[in-house]
Design a protein around this nucleic acid. Structure first.
Length: 305
RNA sequence: AGGGGUGUAGUUCAAUGGUAGAACGACGGUCUCCAAAACCGUUGAUGUGGGUUCAAUUCCUACCACCCCGG
């Protein structure tokens, strides 16, 4: 059966480069698995691949929306699923590359985001405290309530919305799913020891500034809607206090580096616990080594379930 | 080598003559549509030596360090 190669892992470990090397050797097509690289205006700060670096390898789901538009994992799942099937039809190998664990999981498992559910509960309940919201959810859907921390307002609200707009609980919808992979997959995770990783992150952030990050962010902040997803992105959101004079340049750079480090940690936790990942330490293996190991596993029929 | 001030967690700040708190950080974790988000847990400190006291981080004192003044 057709199989997907998934390259995830921590930021600044060379996922993009690995994917290109691999794709060239196995006739692969690359699908973006990153929540921020879908935005066409966000290039420098997301470390998006440049046109010349693609070396002729087909790339999909990059630059598909503007920062003025909204986008989220539900749309991503639909688009990516279609694209995977198209690539299979072309007898090519889909390689999904990116650091957004939820995006990858949503495509590879039978997630159902329930399009009928609207999210207007957040305005309806904006005056409620966290505890009051949590009490409402406990009445609607005790099972879900027990899995969500009362302070996690976002998820409590979402579970409330699911019940109020579909008439069924979130736990009901979850019980309808198989919680199994819908494709055969080979999961590759790239990591590095902490010192190397931090050096790579620091270097990359410094390079982004040299490449004109400030200008890019300035343009985006002008045109993006205030609640746009892109203003949550690391390397972008930190400019808001900088542009209003609350922090200086040096503090800005440090803040971006710090947030990137913390993000890398969360990525490791997510991939390690949500997928059966084969990890490669990029300090131990070269890109060429990793590519040949992946190909051996791929052709040997290995899959991670 | 005069005067004044400050020394509490990695950092910024609380507090008290009777078990030293917080925020941020660091570390670990959760994850079914704002996910580069949101959330949770753990960690860790009274500069040094004396003195007063049942008890000192708190009061006194010497030293050390840092800051300000010495127009």
């Amino acid at each position: 059966m057709s199989k997907i190669i998934v390259i995830g892992g921590q930021t600044a470990t060379g996922k993009t480069k690995l994917a290109i090397e691999l794709a060239k050797q196995i006739n692969g097509s690359i699908i973006n698995g990153d929540s921020m690289q879908v935005y066409k205006e966000m290039n420098i700060g997301t470390a998006k691949i440049k046109e010349v670096e693609k070396e002729g390898v087909p790339h999909y789901l990059f630059d598909i929306v503007s920062v003025k538009e909204s986008f989220s994992v539900a749309e991503y799942k639909d688009l990516a699923t279609k694209k995977i099937n198209e690539i299979f039809e072309q007898k090519r190998v889909p390689i999904i590359v990116g650091g957004t664990g939820l995006y990858l999981r949503s495509v590879l498992y039978d997630y159902d985001f329930n399009k009928e559910v609207s999210n207007d509960s957040s305005t309806k309940y904006k005056d409620k405290t966290n505890q009051e919201l949590y009490d409402i959810l406990k009445k609607y859907d005790l099972d879900s309530a027990l899995q969500i921390h009362p302070n996690n307002r976002k998820r409590v609200l979402r579970a409330i919305s699911i019940y109020e707009s579909s008439g069924k609980t979130k736990s009901y919808w979850l019980s309808k799913q198989k919680h199994k992979l819908v494709f055969d997959c080979l999961f590759i995770g790239l990591t590095a020891d902490r010192k190397t990783l931090y050096n790579s992150i620091n270097k990359r952030v410094d390079e982004m500034f040299v490449a004109g990050l400030e200008k890019e962010v300035h343009e985006i902040i002008k045109s993006a809607s205030p609640n746009s997803t892109c203003l949550q992105a690391i390397g972008y959101k930190e400019f808001i206090p900088y542009f209003s004079g609350l922090i200086n340049k040096e503090q800005l750079v440090e803040l971006i580096k710090k947030n990137t480090r913390r993000y890398a940690k969360r990525q490791y936790t997510f991939f390690n616990n949500q997928f059966k990942v084969t990890w490669y330490d990029t300090n131990v293996y070269t890109t060429t080594d990793i590519v040949s190991k992946i190909i051996a596993d791929f052709e040997g029929g290995k899959k991670n379930d």
